[in-house]
């Protein structure tokens, strides 16, 4: 029988395969996992796992120190230090000089995504899960008018393309700092890579 959920180990592998092998330049892939509150019956899409690859835009902004204002950068770096401390238990796991480097907009957007969720079909990920129809939004101007807080936030942080594809138990979201027009190949790849019989055995 098919397992109820993808295992955590295979999730990371699936997300990595999706974007490392793609022709297009995707900055990140996220799996939004569905769950149902047994008391209220509400359906929630929450963070399942994510893979951040980065982009040429990240490198350019880091070199030019233009990722965000000085105050915003200090805030991001402080949060990064706190998160590092959280996962390392306050000791060990040195960040070296990495924390002092610019935290780019798309890195920040990915980090903030870990705190987000979509209740009962809200937001583009929620709509995609409920309708079963994928969403492909190319261009910052289109993200800005998509009537979705997450799409607007993505555009604010420099994402130019956001794609959501419904899969078993959730939604796969891909994001890029490039404007990427529809690709049947990547849509098909999401379906194959996120089928239960891939990798679980």
């Amino acid at each position: 029988p098919a397992p109820a959920y993808f295992s955590q180990e295979t999730l990371q592998h699936r997300l990595q395969i999706l974007i490392e092998g793609a022709k297009e330049s995707w900055a990140y892939a996220i799996f939004w996992q569905s769950s149902v509150d047994v008391c209220s019956g509400a359906t929630l899409l929450g963070w399942g796992d994510g893979y951040y690859k980065g982009s040429e835009d990240d490198k350019r902004k880091r070199k030019a120190n233009t990722a965000a204002s000085a105050a915003e950068q200090e805030h991001r770096k402080r949060v990064l230090r706190e998160l590092n401390s959280l996962i390392s238990g306050g000791a060990g796991f040195s960040m070296d000089d990495a924390v002092e480097e610019e935290v780019t907009d798309s890195e920040w957007f990915f980090l903030v995504s870990m705190t987000q969720s979509f209740l009962n079909g809200t937001g583009i990920p929620g709509q995609v899960f409920f309708s079963g129809a994928p969403s492909w939004i190319a261009g910052g101007d289109r993200l800005a008018v998509a009537h979705c807080d997450r799409a607007l936030q993505a555009q604010t942080f420099g994402i130019q393309t956001m794609v959501c594809v419904p899969v078993a138990n959730g939604v796969v979201e891909l994001g890029s700092t490039d404007t990427i027009f529809h690709s049947a190949e990547i849509m098909s790849k999401v379906k194959v890579v996120f089928s239960f019989n891939s990798f679980e055995n």
Binding site: E82, N84, L86, D97, A98, L111, V112, M114
Partner: peptide, 26 residues
């Protein structure tokens, strides 16, 4: 990010490790 619960720690740890690699390769 302050509200990242326990279940997301693995994703976060991977992100930070990969970030170190990306930054050192920049």
């Amino acid at each position: 990010p302050r509200a990242v619960p326990q279940a997301r720690k693995a994703s976060l740890a991977r992100f930070l490790e990969k970030r170190k690699e990306r930054v050192s390769n920049t």
